[in-house]
Design a protein around this nucleic acid. Structure first.
Length: 578
RNA sequence: GAUUUCUUAGCUCAGUUGGUAGAGCAUCUCCCUUUUAAGGAGAGGGUCCUGGGUUCGAGCCCCAGAGGAAUCACCA
């Protein structure tokens, strides 16, 4: 049973059809401008002045009706198009020059609702209060909305009332969120602009955007648990990729000297405000470069992104202003740990590191090896305090099985991460291209797996074979697009930068059909009463006491004023439940 | 997974020691030809998340469950 408001709108739908107005017309609607264009191009008008000639004397705009202020024989309304809102002026005698005023009185005032999609034609003018508006000479209903929208209102100071804020509803019905919350729409425009800026930057440098498999027989390139699926024809297990690193490196072996991919990756792990099971990364590999070179690229590219989105390198994130202007601060990992804890961990063995973790009150478990322990210390004591963009370089070899050993520092690899707002935004290294070293590292990972680390990497023979043909020295980079978008749009959760974040499934009750009700002997005219009482499922109905149901139905019949409907007898009700 | 907390009208929210369920906006009717959180008059609209319990009586107290949120754990 639909709520009354929706029933009213469906009735209006029929009313419109009777008047010969198709509420869902098929023909295209020619639009020649937008709300934003009108606001910039007609700003010169004085209050009370109208456009006398040119394009803005005959504008055509389409959008959703979002606000309406009717004043008898005329009224104002707001039309929302992708660029924003523009006020429209509807005048009865303008729209209905003849005797018949029904197109205004009946259709516009009664049959058109907030949320409907309209096309309007007319001329631009400025009202006496100085608001640019369209004086409508003709309007067309383009789509009738059956469900009412939430109605947030904004006052002069930009304060929002009755905002549509429930996160569950906002994420499940993102379309509604996008209609009524302009900031949300802007966030996603910024996200796309962010990716486009990167794409343009990398294309300009001549790198090739590529696509690699999402369904992979072996997952690799990162440490994470995968989603597992099955291919019927080949009767084999496939995994959704957790990274695309190993495939992109194969392409470097193949002779491209710069490849990148924006990729959806999938990790079967916990969800939080920083984690969604599917997320987006960009990975970039450039031949004949090293991680030092890549750091400079990251600085330049991210600075460009900030400028493209905000026109400045300074971005407000929560309570901080983060400045992405080059150059960024750089620490080695050991240097950062020394800086924040005063402890030099560079020469420590596993036992000493465990003791240090105890001293710093960091929880560790037995499956953690040396590299993991150092990472824990860094993650606990350093990372959260790095607000301004900072590079952390030179990680322990144990936690970076795909990175090249440091050219001068034994036990370390040539790897860096960029941290901003206390979170990693990118990960990069001089790629390991020694096939024998790579095999050993994979074997260490396999041992870690046996020790209980369920995120240890698997050994990929084909990848090793590729390396054995020779991969040139290569710098690789991965940037978390969602995390970077969060920072660049000042969004506190990853859900705010994903159109459709993963949610628990929505509970959908199985509604009984009219036939289901009739099947147990309920008269057709009683069905609306049963539904009004909330018995949408036969199973729910069956467990009610006959006397209560009999009372309820009779009572509801009276309440619904269904005088022509005859109340069921108690025996009749007992018959339904038998 | 743990802890805390929330769930009342289409939306945002009140709801007193347990005593007939409220407001604004939205909807419907009427008035209003430059308003803009338009305004004025009136009306309709509720499974108080669900199921038990205590009580003469539960939106409120107790128990269980569902869903959401936050924090933690997990997560390079």
């Amino acid at each position: 049973m639909r709520p009354e408001q929706e029933r009213v709108r469906i009735a209006k739908l029929e009313e419109l059809r009777k008047l010969g107005i198709d509420p869902y017309p098929a023909d295209l609607y020619e639009v020649n401008t937008t709300s934003a264009e009108i606001k910039t191009e007609c700003a010169h008008l004085n209050a009370g002045e109208k456009v006398e000639e040119g394009k803005y004397k005959q504008v055509s705009v389409a959008g959703r009706l979002m606000g309406r202020r009717i004043q008898g024989k005329a009224g104002f309304a707001e039309l929302q198009d992708p660029e924003g809102r523009v006020q429209i002026y509807m005048n009865r005698d303008e729209l209905c020059p003849g005797e018949d005023k029904s197109y205004y009185n009946n259709v516009y005032k009664k049959l058109i609702d907030l949320g409907d999609i309209l096309g309007v034609k007319g001329y631009v003018f400025k009202t006496q209060t100085g608001e640019l508006s369209i004086w409508v000479t003709e309007y067309t209903l383009l789509t009738k909305a059956i469900k009412p929208l939430p109605q947030p209102k904004t006052d002069e100071d930009g304060k929002v009332y009755d905002a549509f804020t429930d996160p569950e509803l906002r994420y499940r019905q993102r379309y509604v969120d996008l209609i009524v919350n302009p900031k949300v729409r802007d966030t996603f425009i910024k996200r796309t602009k962010l990716m486009n800026t990167m794409r343009e930057y990398l294309n300009e440098k001549g790198y090739l955007e590529v696509e690699t498999p999402i369904l992979q027989p072996l997952y690799g390139g990162a440490a994470a648990r995968p989603f597992k699926t099955h291919h019927n024809t080949l009767d084999m297990t496939l995994y959704l990729r957790i990274a695309n690193e190993l495939y992109l490196k194969r392409l470097i072996v193949g002779g491209y000297d710069g490849v990148y991919e924006f990729s959806k990756d999938f990790r079967n792990e916990g969800m939080s405000r920083f984690h969604n099971p599917e997320f987006t990364q960009i990975e970039l590999y450039v031949a004949y470069k090293d991680y030092e070179w890549m750091m400079n690229l990251v600085e330049e590219m991210v600075e460009k992104v900030a400028l493209a989105l905000h026109g400045t390198t300074e971005v407000q994130v929560g309570e901080h202003v983060i400045n992405f202007q080059r150059p960024w601060k750089r620490y080695t990992m050991y240097g950062a740990i020394q800086h924040f804890t005063g402890i030099d961990v560079s020469g420590m063995d596993e036992a000493q590191l465990r003791a240090t973790c105890d001293k710093l009150e960091i929880k560790v478990d037995d499956s953690m090896a040396k590299g993991k322990l150092i990472d824990e210390i860094f993650g606990e004591k350093c990372e959260p305090f790095l607000i301004q963009p900072t590079f952390i370089t030179d990680y322990p070899v144990e936690m970076s099985p795909l990175a090249k050993k440091h050219r001068t520092e034994p036990g370390l690899v040539e790897r860096f991460e960029a941290i901003a707002n206390g979170k990693e935004i990118c990960n990069s290294f001089s790629e390991l291209n020694d096939p024998l070293d790579q095999r050993e590292r994979f074997e260490e990972q396999v041992n870690l797996g046996k020790r209980g680390d369920d995120e240890a990497m698997t050994l990929d023979e084909d990848f090793l074979r590729a390396l054995e043909y020779g991969m040139p020295p290569t710098a690789g980079l991965g940037i978390g697009i969602d995390r970077l978008s969060m920072i660049m749009t000042n969004s506190p959760t990853i859900q705010e930068v994903l159109f459709f974040p993963q949610m628990k499934p929505e509970k959908q009750p199985v509604y009984a059909t009219e036939e289901d009700y009739k099947a147990i002997g309920i008269r057709e005219e009683l069905i609306p009463i049963i539904q009004e009482l909330g018995y949408f499922e036969i199973e729910k109905l069956k467990v009610v006491k006959a006397t209560k149901l009999h009372q309820d139905v009779s009572g509801m019949r009276k309440k619904m004023k269904l005088k022509e409907v005859k109340n069921p007898s108690l025996e009749e009700v007992e018959g339904w439940l038998a």
